[in-house]
């Protein structure tokens, strides 16, 4: 946990915005340097980022878990807090607390093939995981990333994608290509048909908008993969991040903030996928 000189889990630590990157249409990445040490975290864990005067919202930590002097979050401007984050400048303050939740069980996957299927801003939920797999590439079998965005202009973290693709098989697809687009076209599920997937010892990681999670899940079931080999990172409305406020509770009583946000897919009802 971030050190806040108190054992109060609701109390944030001040953090300074040290870098802002324009990623894609409506998406920015912020590099945040908290007062005190950056805590260790597992890929898939999240932090609550608060802009004072506006409120807090949960974001997956998108930087590498091996970096210890800052964290990065990538944010699409959709609501009050995210728009306030977009209006921040370098040198401004935010409050962060966390890291919260259960991340990806990366140590359990060693020796296996890992297939990551992400869509839209879902890439940020697996960015830390991709960094981890990139750094410890030798511990895993094949590592594949399928990523889908609406248009080529909507693809964020391009520098990172370039780095990852040197060690990770990366396939990008867009719904609406422009004249210069050389990758695939169509929903991310079409990539699962097009490219040959490993049959055995494979772990699937799904992260994206609810409708895409369900579509990928259905596709994988049709391709005869088992739910116990699939992991999903879910998003819900969150207020506290510590399993108290109730907002993120799933229909089987699990809290996304505390029991998740990463779930093995057979831990949760299908209705909660979409």
């Amino acid at each position: 946990m971030l050190i806040n000189n108190s054992s109060n889990p609701l109390l944030p630590v001040p953090a300074k915005v040290v870098l802002i990157k324009d990623e894609a249409r409506g998406i920015k990445t912020l590099r945040l340097k908290p007062k005190g040490k950056v805590p260790e975290f597992t890929p898939g864990q999240f932090v609550m980022v608060g802009v004072f005067g506006y409120g807090e919202a949960p974001f997956a930590i998108a930087s590498s878990p091996l970096i210890s002097d800052y964290i990065e979050v990538s944010v699409r401007a959709v609501g009050d807090v995210t728009n306030a984050i977009h209006r921040l400048s370098v040198g401004d303050w935010v409050g962060i607390r966390g890291p919260y939740g259960r991340g990806f069980p990366v140590r359990d996957w060693e020796g296996r093939n890992v297939v990551i299927v992400a869509g839209g801003t879902g890439l940020f939920g697996v960015s830390a995981l991709l960094w981890y797999l990139y750094e410890f590439r030798g511990r895993y079998g094949r590592v594949i990333l399928f990523y889908g965005a609406r248009t080529p202009q909507d693809i964020p973290r391009r520098d990172d994608l370039r780095v990852w693709s040197s060690r990770i098989e990366t396939y990008l697809t867009v719904d609406r290509p422009d004249g210069r687009w050389k990758g695939d076209v169509g929903l991310v599920t079409t990539l699962l048909d097009k490219y040959k997937l490993p049959r055995r010892g494979v772990i699937f990681v799904i992260c994206g908008p609810p409708i895409m999670i369900k579509a990928v899940y259905d596709k994988l079931i049709k391709l005869d993969y088992r739910p116990k080999d699939m992991y999903v990172s879910l998003e819900r409305r969150m207020q506290c991040g510590i399993g108290k406020c109730g907002a993120c509770m799933l229909s089987n009583g699990l809290y996304v903030c505390k029991d998740g946000p990463v779930f093995r897919i057979d831990e949760i009802p299908e209705a909660d996928l979409s």
């Binding site: 005067g53 207020q239 108290k244 406020c245 109730g246």
Partner: peptide, 8 residues
Amino acid sequence: CVCFDIID
């Protein structure tokens, strides 16, 4: 019932 929001 304990559920709550945290607002600024």
